[in-house]
Design a protein around this nucleic acid. Structure first.
Lengths: 210, 210
DNA sequence: ATTAAATTACCGACCGGTCAGTTATTAAAT
DNA sequence: ATTTAATAACTGACCGGTCGGTAATTTAAT
């Protein structure tokens, strides 16, 4: 840290972004309830009082983290599904790998696990997340599956019945990473996991005609 | 409530079981950290001080809940896998349906979600659970998959690479049930979910030879 | 340019409430 | 009368949110 001649500086523009960044890190590390606003403020180099100048409550701070970190990624994914050429199996592969790259393997991925962990205790946050993130994500994957059915690559099924099942191994790997992974439990390497997952799913989804 | 002549009774034998039952219910409903020992004691009809006569700490109380509720089920599953006759696909079906019956669809299932939710904040509990429950469960499922490979029903793969992937949709459904389900998010009915899951997995696992 | 007044970003002590764990006391059982 | 299961009051640490005061910066007057 650079040692300033002054005790602090006015940086009205930079504060919100620095606070959401600090909040993301600590929310992911400790969860929503267990993260103290004192800590977030300290991590961002301000005091707790300052935090309240920019966000009206802990909950609003959290929502800001989600809006900033997750909604742009969803928008990107929607573009990808709408425009991707080639077979549905290839689209599926790309979605999986890209999702792991930008969500699974990034701090923001910890938010998903946090939601499952604390939805019951913070229903307002859960509802916000379900509407803004989960619904959009489900539509995205269902559209990709539908493309495979339409083209005959995938057997006929109701995409809405399968989105959760198909996505679960990815979500579960992410949950695992942010929970038991930290406690020295053995796990399969990510590249193996993703490869075997994609193969299992494509075999399970493909149509019977050879 | 029956009105007792006395303000309370000495019931040394019954207390531990009543306390673990109350603890299970509240831990599942609110999570580990958010459940107050006052509440558990009240639910069991005693005071908080009494709880400490039978369990040395919140953590030990939790471990007792797991030992009492989950370890007998694992033992039953191990017997099932060791003795079940018939093809591996049928064994897989039975394991899935039975697991949902005794874990997924029972209060004790909430413990699994709790572990994922709070492992990071309570590493000692996570390690205990990983050793006593998860390792045993993984061995159980891996053995069932191995049987299918040996018999030629399943294609060749490393069962240890696939256990997490295969089990994820079940685990995820359970996590969902104890988190976002409570917040009015639409979900597929359980029977449809399980049927589609089993079909997807068996198609994904079966060997190519017809 | 210099200085002084006005503004406001920021600090940090504080409050009300919560909760795991302890202990002094009471009362049931024999 | 003695033993001990059970109670209830208590402790100390913690935390979300508030608020009076302070200091960095801006503006206006000379």
């Amino acid at each position: 840290m650079v040692c300033p001649a002054t005790r602090w500086r006015r940086r009205k523009e930079a504060r919100p972004q620095e606070l959401t960044a600090a909040a993301l890190e600590l929310f992911v590390e400790k969860g929503y309830a267990a993260t103290r606003l004192d800590e977030i403020a300290a991590q961002a180099g301000v005091s707790k009082g300052t935090l309240y100048l920019y966000f009206t409550s802990k909950e609003e701070l959290f929502k800001a983290v989600v809006r900033e970190g997750l909604l742009p990624l969803l928008a990107e994914g929607e573009v990808l599904v709408a425009n991707a050429p080639g077979p549905a199996s290839e689209l599926f592969r790309v979605i999986v790998m890209r999702w792991w790259e930008v969500v699974g393997d990034n701090p923001i991925g910890g938010i998903s696990k946090l939601i499952f962990a604390e939805a019951r205790n913070f229903p307002e946050i859960a509802r916000f997340y379900a509407e803004e993130v989960i619904e959009r994500g489900k539509r995205l994957l269902a559209a990709a599956l539908q493309r495979g059915i339409d083209s005959g690559e995938f057997r006929p099924f109701n995409p809405d019945d399968l989105v959760h099942i198909v996505f679960s191994p990815l979500m579960m790997r992410l949950v695992w990473k942010h929970s038991l992974d930290c406690c020295g439990v053995h796990t399969v390497p990510v590249d193996v996991y993703l490869r075997e997952y994609i193969e299992l799913m494509l075999r399970g989804l493909r149509s019977d005609v050879v």
